[in-house]
């Protein structure tokens, strides 16, 4: 059981690295979809082990909303830029990887130092979860493409769902539902703006948007 969970969490972590370095918009969105589906699978595996039905609901919601619906929405909005030219890195590739590795290390140290009461999952999963969160946020800061920035935020949110699975499985379904609603509205607003960015600068590269200074 623990082995399955750790393996799935490792896959989630690897996909976070993938988002950090992916070269094309389509690859990024697909990476996020895969990450969400693995995350949902992890929640369902935990349900199978513990019998908590809200875990089952969470897993199914993650697969349906984050794995299928949200990627479809983004894909619809970002269709014109899908798989076109390669994305530029704001932070160089080796630097991004090294910083990402450093963030992972920090996450693991934090998870090891803080006195957590592990619930269903073990401490390494917590380290991975925090690492996914940090990597997602780092992706948002390190990349300039609007779609990739959005995906980075969503990946960070996936990491937080994983943190929630590890340390606060009793938080309650209602809160998780409102979180999902929040994410959905956020995706709607941001993908609307992505469409507008695309109309304005004919790409989704936000470094084109830099008139506001001082």
């Amino acid at each position: 059981m623990d082995l399955i969970a750790t393996t799935l969490a490792t896959l989630v972590l690897l996909s976070a690295f993938w988002l950090l370095i992916a070269r094309r918009v389509g690859a990024t969105v697909n990476g996020y979809a895969a990450q969400s589906i693995v995350l949902g699978g992890l929640a369902i595996a935990l349900f199978a082990g513990s019998g908590q039905t809200d875990l089952l609901a969470l897993g199914l919601l993650a697969i349906l909303i984050k794995g299928l619906l949200i990627p479809a929405v983004i894909e619809r909005q970002a269709r014109p830029v899908y798989g076109l030219r390669e994305l530029q890195y704001q932070v160089g590739f080796p630097t991004a990887l090294l910083l990402g590795a450093g963030l992972t290390l920090i996450a693991f140290v934090a998870a090891g130092r803080l006195p957590f009461h592990p619930g269903l999952l073990s401490e390494p999963v917590l380290g991975m979860a925090i690492a996914v969160t940090l990597l997602g946020l780092f992706t948002t800061m390190a990349r300039r493409d609007a779609v990739v920035q959005l995906t980075g935020l969503l990946a960070a949110e996936n990491g937080l769902i994983l943190v929630g699975l590890v340390i606060s499985s009793g938080l309650g379904l209602l809160i998780e539902l409102s979180l999902f609603l929040d994410v959905l509205i956020g995706v709607a607003v941001m993908s609307f703006l992505i469409t507008r960015i695309h109309e304005t600068v004919a790409s989704t590269d936000t470094s084109e948007l830099r008139r506001l200074r001082g």
Partner: peptide
């Protein structure tokens, strides 16, 4: 790197 981290800190 992840392997080392996972093993030594995990």
């Amino acid at each position: 790197f992840l392997s080392v981290v996972l093993f030594s800190l995990g």
